[in-house]
Design a protein around this nucleic acid. Structure first.
Length: 284
DNA sequence: AAGCCTACCAACCGCAGCCTC
DNA sequence: AGAGGCTGCGGTTGGTAGGCT
């Protein structure tokens, strides 16, 4: 709990900014640019620390900021990107012109998170694991298994956010599709069905499999072509595992609502009919 | 009407990475 | 090489407004 290095030498004001302070900062930066933030308050005639000036400018005064509530499209983008990037708010915000990381973070914490928790009844598919849907890019998208939210867990008292199924569909969209390896088909591998520890007899939990896809709970290794590399079903926690050759018995992934459709679109997951496997055969 | 509760969001804090010397 | 400063990031806090009892 100390002062910022840029604030050591001067007494600085804290708390909410007054309109006069805003005006001074806007005037100064408009005329000179921010340059070195630590010198901005002195040059702009403000009793603030540089860090505070920077934050105020970035989060509130910048002319290119889009104010107002988030649109449904923006919400969808946030949910999708969060499923891949985790709490990397600045990265997520870069995909939302006019929005700041702080804004995205606040929106997530106050709105989306609650909706996700409210949809906790959505079957947890967090026991799935995906490899090789990411190959490393300069934009720095992390492999899904680096997102703490994606770490497989079997406890329902933890927040399990987007299911990997919806995440996989996520990487098939928009800018993320560019991250895919051209010659590495991604596969989704269904591990043995294991009910959550705290609710081992829950019928709801298994609806995602049983009612939609009529999968046999006793049958392991039920694969869906989706874009992920196949993987040993016992290797859930081991990201270093390499998968066996492609499963020739794999069946196509059924159309599932994306997470954001479930959360913000009121899509009823249970109402999704299982598609015909014929309709999803790979085209090539 | 008053007090309490909750949601929202601006701002702060500490840390880590980068850059410069 | 490493020390110090700057910047950016993510987590957290605190003030305020609006709703509820």
């Amino acid at each position: 709990m100390g002062q910022h290095s840029c604030c050591n030498k001067q007494k600085v004001k804290r708390g909410l900014w007054s309109p006069e302070e805003d005006e001074k900062l806007i005037t100064y930066i408009s005329a000179n640019g921010h340059g070195n933030w630590s010198s901005v308050p002195r040059l702009a005639g403000l009793q603030r620390c540089g860090k505070s000036c920077r934050l105020r400018w970035i989060n509130y005064l910048r002319p290119d900021l889009k104010r107002g509530s988030f649109s449904t499209e923006e919400e969808a983008v946030i949910i999708r990107l969060h499923s891949i990037l985790g709490n990397r708010w600045s990265r997520i915000a870069k995909h939302l012109p006019g929005r700041t990381d702080n804004e995205v973070k606040n929106f997530w914490n106050t709105s989306i998170k609650k909706k996700l928790l409210a949809h906790d009844a959505v079957p947890s598919l967090a026991t799935f694991h995906v490899l090789d849907c990411y190959n490393g890019t300069e934009d720095g998208f992390s492999p899904p298994n680096t997102n703490p939210n994606l770490v497989p867990n079997f406890r329902r008292d933890q927040l399990h956010l987007p299911s990997p199924l919806t995440m996989l569909r996520g990487v098939d969209h928009g800018d993320l599709i560019l991250e895919r390896n051209n010659f590495s088909r991604t596969w989704l591998h269904f591990p043995p069905i294991i009910p959550p520890l705290s609710d081992p007899f829950s019928n709801n939990w298994s609806q995602g499999y049983d009612q939609h896809y009529q999968l046999d709970p006793n049958q392991h290794d039920q694969n869906f072509i989706m874009g992920a590399t196949p993987q040993d079903s016992h290797g859930l926690m081991n990201p270093s595992l390499t998968g066996p050759p492609y499963d020739t018995n794999a069946i196509p992934a059924p159309e599932m609502p994306e997470l954001y459709e479930i959360i913000i679109g009121g899509v009823n997951l249970v109402a999704c009919a299982p598609p015909s496997p014929e309709a999803h055969k790979p085209s090539n």
